[in-house]
Amino acid sequence: MPAPSSSRARRFVVRLAWIAVLAALLSLGWALHSGSIRIPEAFNPWAPLDVAAEPNLLTGFKLRHARRDPARCLAALASTGLTYETVPDRSTGPGCGFQNTVRLRSGRSLALSSPTVLSCGAALSFAMWERHALQPAAVLRLGMPVVTLEHLGSYACRDINTGEGQARTSGRRSRHATADALDVAGFVREDRRRITVQRDWEGGDAEALFLRDAHAGACRFFDGVLGPDYNAVHADHFHLEVGGWGLCR
C-alpha cells in the first residue's frame, strides 16, 4: 500500500496539471477575443456571425451571441438580404411588448404572405434557416425553390396555448408576446403549387419530405420548433421561436 504522503503528492500534481490546462484555455480564449492571435473567422468563436458562410460547429454559438446583443444583431441582419425596417420599441401590457424589432417584408429569396413584426433575433434565425436549410431542402426534395412563405402571424399578446382543457392556456406568456416567434403554415413553390403543413405533413411524397426537412432544419437555428407531431394545436403550422426552452418536436 503506498504511503499517504505519496498519494497526497500525486493528487497535488494532478491539481497542478488541471490548473495549468485551465490557465492555458483562459489565455487562449483571451488571445482570440483580443485579436492577438489570428485564425480564420470561421473558426474564431468571437468573430461576428457570417450569415453567408457554411455553418460549422461554431455557428450556433455565434448566432446566440449575435441575438443577445442588439447592435450586433442588427449589424448581422443587415447582411442577410432580408427586406425589413426597424420599428419602435413597444409595451402593450404585462409581459407583452417588443424591443429591437423589425417589420419583416420578405426573405432573401422568398416573399412573405404579409409583413410581420419579429424581434431582431428571430429575424436573424429566420435568415439562417431560409438560406441554409429551407431553400436547400426545397431544391433537394421539390427540384425547385419555394417563392412564398405563408404564415399565421408573429406578435400577439397572449399566453401559451396548450390545447388542453377549457382554458386552453398555460398561464405563461407565449414567445409570441415578445415578437420572438413565427407560425409558418405553408409555402408556394416556384411552379405556384401550394404546400401546407396541415395537408402535406403526413406521407412519403416529395412535399412531406420537404416539410420534414424544413422542420428539422429550423431546429438548427431556432431555440424552439413545434409542429404537427407535438400536439393538435400545431397540426396546421410550425411554431418557430427564439429565447425559450430548447425543444424540437
Rank of each mutant, 00 (worst) to 15 (best):
A9R: 13
R38Q: 10
H234P: 06
D180M: 08
R11D: 13
F43W: 15
D69W: 02
A52N: 14
A47N: 09
D229A: 10
D205N: 12
T92F: 08
V13E: 15
L110W: 08
G121M: 02
T196P: 03
C248S: 09
A179H: 07
G163R: 09
G227V: 00
S114K: 15
L112C: 07
E54I: 13
A156D: 10
S34Q: 11
G81W: 00
R141Q: 14
I195M: 05
G163E: 05
A216L: 13
V87L: 01
H234W: 04
Q198N: 14
L247T: 10
V13Y: 10
H151T: 08
S114T: 15
S170W: 04
A123K: 00
V197L: 10
R64I: 02
D229S: 13
N161L: 12
T178V: 12
R103I: 11
L112F: 07
D50A: 11
V146I: 13
P45T: 11
L63M: 07
C73H: 01
L77W: 00
Y155S: 01
G224R: 14
L134I: 07
G244Y: 03
T178C: 01
W30C: 14
A123F: 06
C157W: 00
F43G: 08
F98R: 01
W18T: 13
G224V: 14
H151A: 08
I195S: 03
L209S: 13
R72G: 13
A47W: 00
P4K: 06
A123W: 02
I195P: 02
G93I: 05
R11W: 06
D213L: 11
D213G: 03
L240H: 02
L32Y: 04
R194P: 05
A218D: 03
A232T: 11
H33G: 12
M128C: 10
V242W: 00
S170M: 08
Y155C: 03
A208D: 07
W245E: 12
S113V: 05
A137M: 08
A206S: 15
G204H: 13
R11F: 08
G81F: 01
M128G: 03
F222A: 07
A75R: 12
S154L: 07
I37K: 02
P115W: 06
G244R: 03
E54Y: 07
R220I: 05
I37R: 09
W201M: 05
A47V: 07
D50V: 07
P145F: 00
V139G: 04
V117M: 09
F43P: 08
N100P: 02
A47E: 09
T59H: 06
N44I: 05
N231D: 11
A156R: 14
A218G: 06
G29K: 10
S154T: 04
N231C: 06
S109P: 05
R67K: 13
D236H: 11
G243E: 02
P115N: 01
E41K: 14
L22F: 12
C219G: 10
V147P: 04
L211D: 02
Y84L: 01
R103V: 12
D213T: 07
R15M: 09
P228W: 04
V184W: 00
P228Y: 04
S114R: 14
G203Y: 11
L58A: 06
W129I: 02
R67P: 06
